[in-house]
Design a binder for these strands. Structure first.
Length: 197
DNA sequence: GACACGATGGGCT
DNA sequence: GCCCATCGTGTCT
């Protein structure tokens, strides 16, 4: 169960994001091991990306984004949801990859307890659900993925090609084609393409 | 101190 | 598929 190294994360988020697909996110908890295969991510650059929390100056909230790569950046939004990101790029720049969905593997019954549902597709599809399933919140903000109980393994398994789209929930002017996902039941968004007529 | 708004998702139809 | 609750955060006064 080797983990991805600091070097892996210390690259442009647009390169790191698709490279994270198919890898497995792990968390060792008191209740047991949780894991999920990453199937959907979004890249957020720093000062040159108006859609990014790193676009403006450093604040208490986004300070982790400006730090060294390979750390977890967890933040709270919409008054009810956490979102977790992997900090990328070099120390001093603010870029990250948002983890949007995983295919639940180990500890599905623990995730079900955290989520309040046993429906497999609702365990970790969407950034808020993913955080709830893996119990990622304020206290996990800044966690070092290269040394600790949260990490991403080097092993990669893909069930299809990497697909690309614009990022979700973002105004068109500042959007970029930096959402990367694998087609299937575990990603967020409509599960069946709209029939074209 | 006030205020506008968002990297959403649950619940209902 | 559509509606909308809900509150931390940044920014401005």
């Amino acid at each position: 169960m080797r983990r991805l190294s600091r070097r892996f994360y210390a690259r442009d988020p647009v390169l790191v994001a698709p490279d994270l697909l198919g890898r497995t996110l792990y968390r060792q908890t008191r209740e047991g091991l949780l894991s999920g295969r990453i199937v959907e991510v979004e890249a957020y650059k720093g000062s040159d990306d108006p859609g990014s929390h790193g676009f403006r100056r450093m604040t208490p909230r986004n300070v982790v984004m400006f730090g060294p790569p390979g750390h977890l950046y967890v933040y709270f939004t919409y008054g009810m949801h956490f979102c977790s990101n992997v900090v990328t790029g070099s120390d001093g720049t603010a870029s990250a990859v948002l983890l949007r969905a995983v295919e639940p593997l180990d500890g599905r019954e623990i995730m079900a307890r955290h989520r309040g549902t046993a429906e497999p597709r609702l365990l970790a599809r969407g950034p808020g659900r993913l955080c709830q399933a893996f119990e990622l919140g304020r206290s996990e903000n800044g966690a070092d993925l290269t040394d600790g109980d949260i990490w991403i393994g080097v092993t990669r398994r893909m069930n299809g090609p990497v697909k690309t789209s614009i990022r979700i929930g973002m105004a068109n002017q500042i959007n970029r084609p930096w959402r990367f996902y694998e087609e299937g039941p575990w990603r967020s968004g409509p599960s069946t393409p709209r029939p074209k007529r």
